[in-house]
Design a protein around this nucleic acid. Structure first.
Lengths: 226, 226
DNA sequence: GACGCCTTGTGACAGTAGTCACACGAGAAT
DNA sequence: ATTCTCGTGTGACTACTGTCACAAGGCGTC
């Protein structure tokens, strides 16, 4: 793992001392993976905890026919595989790289040991799990209580929040949207439906698009808070 | 909080010493609530952590029209309100009694203090949150990847696992099912649809019913493991 | 430039699931 | 006993979603 990984401002490990991060780096095995590489399957025994150094990884479920739903997207600085690592149960979902990614892996024992040595269970793991629960609850609500159009809208707003760039000289945030298929996987729908509904949203709604770039007025973002 | 509450085999606190439980009891405010009593709303600031002593509480989301989806059902010995108590963010969902219930409440600070004093963060909170995440992920998968019939089937099997009684003299488990409306809320559907689909399941499928009592062969339960 | 692969747009269709309306039965309450 | 409420069963209808089929555009590789 290169020194660059221990970026001090990454969300999950913010507030962790440099010494601890250096020690963490020393127990990591770091590798590059191509796009769509499967890191582990749902049901696998807990082996390692993982840290995304570069790229991104989707945690997702699939059914027998190959239909997929993305539970969460882990971006640089985020960890995954934690739950199984912490409670010793099988992995609750599949982990797959979304793009070419650099991933650091730690043996579950070594990682938990590190957490305990530095008294970071609360700071790191609780925060992370709490966030996952919130995220998951929100997603359940979306699925059970809203239709495709609203789910898609929320997904777009969430992306805007997480990776949108402030557009120079305007009160809006821009980002290039993922493919229709990826959006469909995120919201648990199908490519064709996303194609149609997205058009509808972009014409009538509060978002505009130029090509694959979507503009979201900042006013639309703040409103969305739950 | 009566002494009876500190039952030593309750899942969430199994393995916790009697001394610690006694101390916990000493900081609790314990009250009885009628059916359908709202304990907190989604968005409320974190106030307390709660323990179900008797009865049960549903953690659920609602939309504007009053449609509801149950995220998890907390039974005696289970805790809720934890996430907000631990991370200081607003409550992620509503908490409502399902039946007449006795609930012990702890101020968030006092509860966290107790956990830390007895070094139980890992044992109690991590276990609980990990379980919640798994449960939630499973539910998302159900919603995104399965239809009403399968969701209902899973819901019934889950109930059978959690509160089914071994039927004397047969290889089956029995339980009295909740109302159609409650089932609909659990799976995010509607009363009428549950009424129809349930009939379908009970005639063709692996479950049988006599009145409101449902029989599930044990063989059907073990298979369902993920 | 030609080929192939990925992504997209769209019409037509099918099926699932949700809603509305209404009736019936069992129990609780008065 | 009468009345009310709650849970239930069912038919009819609607609408939202997903699927299939097919065409076309973009972009990189050889």
């Amino acid at each position: 793992m290169t020194r660059s990984m221990s970026a001090r401002d990454l969300s999950t490990f913010s507030g962790v001392s440099d010494d601890a991060l250096d020690e963490l780096a020393s127990i990591a095995r770091c590798h590059d993976y191509p796009k769509n590489n499967i890191l582990f399957y749902q049901g696998d025994p807990p082996g390692s905890a993982y840290l995304v150094v570069e790229g991104s990884v989707k945690i997702a479920l699939m059914n027998e026919e190959g239909k997929e739903v993305v539970l969460t997207l882990v971006r640089p600085g985020g960890v995954f595989g934690l739950i199984a690592g912490v409670d010793g149960e099988p992995q609750p979902a599949n982990a797959i790289t979304v793009e070419r990614s650099r991933i650091a892996a730690f043996s579950a024992d070594a990682f938990v040991g590190w957490l305990e040595r530095h008294d970071l269970l609360q700071q790191v793991v609780l925060r992370e799990l709490g966030h996952r629960v919130r995220e998951a609850y929100h997603k359940i609500g979306e699925h059970a209580l809203m239709g495709v159009k609203d789910r898609l809208l929320y997904a777009l707003l969430e992306i805007a929040e997480r990776e949108g760039q402030r557009e120079p000289g305007s009160e809006a945030v821009v980002f290039t949207r993922p493919t229709h298929q990826e959006l469909a996987n995120r919201i648990g729908s199908s490519r064709e439906v996303v194609s149609r509904v997205l058009k509808e949203i972009l014409t009538s709604e509060l978002l505009q698009a130029e090509g694959k770039v979507i503009r979201v007025p900042i006013s639309a973002l703040v409103v969305r808070e739950d």
